[in-house]
Amino acid sequence: MSKKTLTLMSKDKQLFNIEEHLAVQSVTIRNMVKEDGASSVIPLPRVDSETLALVIEYLNRQQAPEEDEDYVKKFVDERGEIPTLLELAQAALDLDIKKLMDAACMKVADLIKDFTLEEVREALRIENDRTPEEEKAIRDEFQWAF
């Protein structure tokens, strides 16, 4: 009996094939498969193709369960760029792949450790949405850290 294959479609309409028993590590995909048998193509409108390729690489890993922790850690370590990691974490969140999301968030947290306020803003692409007065008030509250 041949293994059943699913097709995933990224935001930019690229198609990726993956064996169903591997794809269902994602809780989101598992639920979809359960509901409608996932007949044809599963669209992932929020995940771009580069990120999806990474997710698929992760899902396709051949690892013994006891080596899995190390593998996922190494996997995100090798992709040490903050923007890539954020995309990966977001995709892992959408697809509900907990281990991958936790590892990506951990890596981002490690990378921004010791960053200054401005550096954090830049790294996470945060827009400051407060008036200077409001900002000063919150800085005063955390005065001990500066």
């Binding site: 981002v108 954090v120 001990w144 850290a145």
Partner: peptide, 23 residues
Amino acid sequence: LFYNILRRLDGATLASASCTCSA
């Protein structure tokens, strides 16, 4: 996702991050 990242920071970085935006 932000929560997941922030909860892994050390105190001083968490304090800096807290000042970046209202979220």
